[in-house]
Structure formats: structure tokens, C-alpha cells
């Protein structure tokens, strides 16, 4: 965005706030949805969490310190809302987040809006076998195209640790499937040079 600071001013101002918020939805709704969807798996859950995320964003805009970009800040809220959802889910069904993780494929297969073929299922199986943190990092880097620095900010971890976990995740997936789908003209091997 050309001038994010001006846009944030509009989001905070009482007169322009609502119009600016509509713009914010146009800009980030889809991105945040996919980020959330990969964390909570099913479309219904992602829909709930997305709604909660934007409500929280709207209420918290006045407190945004602008230490990170608006997108990173929103992404972090979406991440926290997803974790909160999974925690609530854990309390309801007496299962841990790790258990939720192991149920990943079951949830995916039960989801009406999953129409994966054999190859996609193979990739999903490999991703589901990553530990929870690695799966988040892999998704953020591979599918959401976030920078390591941004992932480190969102997960409140060191950038070096994020890189190590990502490379380990990529290697694990490579070993478990024949070919990792090529992204934006890069081979899997090239991702190590990012």
C-alpha cells in the first residue's frame, strides 16, 4: 500500500472509519481466510474465526502501535483467534491442540469444501504429520508467502529458529511425497535459498 500510515489514520478517524474498514476487508479478507482455514481446517470453523478476527481488528485499531505492518498485525490477530478457537475446541472435547493436529486429515475429509485428488491428499497427509508449529510455519511461508521476519513477529520466535523449522518441514514433506507442488516457478530446492 502506497501510504499505510494515512490508511491507518482513516481507520482510526471517526468520520472515515467505516469506509476505511470496508477497504480493509477488500484488501485482506481472502488472505486472512486462507491463513485461518489452514489452521482450523474446515470452512465452517474458518468462517467463524474470520468473523471474530475482523471484529477484534475493528475494536483494536485504536491501540495499533504501528510497530509492524498492518497486515502482519492482522495476521497475528487471526493466528491468535485461531489458537483461541482450537483451545476452546480442546476444552469442549477434552483433547489437546496436538490431538486436534492429528485429527487434521479426518476433519479435512469430513469438510464439504475439500475436494482434493490423490496427490493433494498425499501432500495434506505429509503436512498433517508435521508437528503443530512446523505446520504453521510451512503454511505461512509456502502458501501465504510471508517473509521469515514476518513469521517470526507473528509467532514471537527468533527468525533463525523459524528458518530451521521451515527447512526441516520442507525436507520432511519431500521425503514423504514424490514431488512438492511447484510454487511460482520455484523448485522445492530453491526455497532453501529464500
Amino acid at each position: 500500500m502506497a501510504n499505510e500510515s494515512d490508511f491507518i489514520d482513516q481507520l482510526i478517524s471517526e468520520t472515515h472509519r467505516d469506509n476505511a474498514f470496508k477497504k480493509l476487508l477488500d484488501l485482506y479478507q481472502v488472505r486472512l481466510y486462507w491463513h485461518i482455514r489452514k489452521l482450523v481446517i474446515t470452512h465452517e470453523n474458518a468462517d467463524d474465526v474470520l468473523q471474530n478476527t475482523f471484529i477484534r481488528v475493528y475494536k483494536s485499531l485504536a491501540n495499533f502501535s504501528q510497530q509492524s505492518s498492518l497486515y502482519t498485525w492482522m495476521y497475528k490477530i487471526a493466528y491468535n483467534e485461531s489458537i483461541r478457537f482450537l483451545e476452546q475446541n480442546k476444552n469442549k472435547h477434552s483433547i489437546s491442540i496436538e490431538d486436534v493436529n492429528t485429527k487434521y486429515l479426518n476433519c479435512l475429509l469430513e469438510d464439504t469444501f475439500f475436494e482434493g485428488d490423490a496427490m493433494q491428499l498425499k501432500l495434506q497427509t505429509a503436512v498433517s504429520e508435521l508437528n503443530y508449529k512446523q505446520r504453521q510455519i510451512f503454511n505461512m511461508k509456502y502458501y501465504d508467502d510471508l517473509k521469515f521476519r514476518e513469521i517470526a513477529t507473528i509467532l514471537e520466535m527468533k527468525e533463525g529458529t523459524i528458518k530451521t523449522l521451515y527447512y526441516n518441514a520442507v525436507k520432511f514433506i519431500e521425503n514423504n511425497i514424490e514431488i512438492l507442488p511447484v510454487k511460482k516457478g520455484e523448485s522445492v530446492q530453491n526455497t532453501e535459498n529464500i
Partner: peptide, 25 residues
């Protein structure tokens, strides 16, 4: 997300979701 992961969304989902969120906030 559709090609690589087989994940899809209902038709007009984002439009309807946007309206729901706006109505709430």
C-alpha cells in the same frame, strides 16, 4: 489453495462474509 490443497469455498462466500462482518461492526 484449490489446486494444491483441494480446499474450496462456497460460491459468493467472500461477498456474503464481508456483508456479515460489516453488519456486525
Amino acid at each position: 489453495h484449490s489446486d494444491s490443497l483441494g480446499l474450496n469455498v462456497p460460491e459468493n462466500y467472500f461477498f456474503e462474509s464481508k456483508n456479515r462482518i460489516l453488519n456486525k461492526v
